[in-house]
């Protein structure tokens, strides 16, 4: 062992290595902790003594209307996110394609849907009948837009298509993060462009995009609450309906809040599972 720099410096000085280091009291830390605990206690007291009937929160947490609402929230979040991911992958591939027409279309889509508020897009889809009373494929099939554009379908299209615009940028970054040598190796063994994307590039991009997509999915769970404005019966909409009848506004908002927290908390372990699945072969020797 060669002497480290510290030892070299210490030459000619008394040997201090045997002495214990005195711990300095960290007054700042203790004060901060104390202040925070006091603040929390004050907050808890305020809520306990405030105009909140906690028994109502407990009672309404599991009523059928709320449970249906949270199921609808989860169904919508999953469906819209799925649509968003499919669109995102397609648009990302278009944006990275050598074809300028595809690139322009993809760029226009991202620009349009990222540039307008989601709530406006939801209202547009829901009111599509005002623009196109009848929609369909000429000669094959058609229907009245009022019947077709149910709250579910409007919310799915509004949230999913908007999500696609954001997801496409995440996917594009993920695909660009894969070494170009991977694509060349795929080409060299004769794989077509699309097959190389499907088998080589996308699986490796997934590892990079799952953390940001997890984030996006959490946003999506909460964004479904916007669909209450177009009568989609998600959990916030159910809570509102109940408090219109019984005036327990805060209690029901707390109920909805608890459910959002529960769903979002359940997503974290799910994300970790997915991350492990796509990290196969790419981290150390874990296999």
């Amino acid at each position: 062992m060669s002497p480290g720099p510290a030892q070299a410096l210490a030459e000619g000085f008394p040997d201090l290595s045997g002495l214990a280091v005195a711990r300095r009291m960290r007054w700042g830390r203790w004060t901060a902790a104390l202040l925070i605990v006091l603040a929390l206690l004050a907050l808890a007291r305020a809520f306990a003594n405030g105009q909140i009937e906690w028994s109502y929160v407990g009672r309404f947490l599991t009523v059928p209307a709320i449970l249906d609402g949270i199921i609808n929230t989860v169904v919508m979040a999953v469906a819209a996110m799925a649509l968003g991911i499919v669109l995102g992958v397609v648009v990302a591939i278009m944006r990275l394609s050598p074809n300028p027409v595809l690139r322009a279309v993809a760029g226009g889509y991202t620009w349009l849907f990222r540039g307008t508020p989601v709530i406006l897009q939801l209202l547009l889809w829901f009111n599509l009948a005002l623009v196109f009373p009848v929609i369909g494929v000429p000669g094959l099939w058609s229907g009245r837009a009022v019947d077709l554009m149910t709250p579910f379908l409007s919310a799915l299209l509004g949230l999913g298509i908007n999500q696609g615009a954001y997801t496409s940028e995440v996917m594009r970054a993920g695909m660009l993060s894969v070494d170009v040598g991977q694509y060349e190796a795929a080409q060299a063994i004769g794989m077509s462009h699309l097959r190389a994307l499907r088998r080589i590039i996308l699986p490796q991009a997934m590892r990079v995009v799952i953390p940001p997509l997890g984030n996006e999915f959490i946003s999506m769970v909460k964004m479904t609450s916007l669909a209450s404005v177009i009568q989609y019966p998600e959990v916030l909409h159910s809570a509102e309906n109940i408090y219109y009848a019984n005036s327990r506004v805060i209690e029901l908002l707390i109920v909805a809040g608890i459910w959002y927290l529960a769903v979002v908390s359940a997503l974290t372990p799910l994300q970790m599972l997915l991350e492990r699945r796509f990290a196969r072969g790419l981290t150390g020797n874990s296999g």
């Binding site: 040598g181 991977q182 060299a188 063994i189 004769g190 080589i200 699986p203 196969r280 072969g281």
Partner: peptide, 21 residues
């Protein structure tokens, strides 16, 4: 396509697919 089926290539950086066995 025809040419690539007939020609194999080995790269300096191997370029194996890390996510596949």
């Amino acid at each position: 396509d025809t040419v690539r089926r007939d020609v194999g290539m080995v790269f300096q950086q191997f370029n194996l697919f890390p996510h596949l066995t």
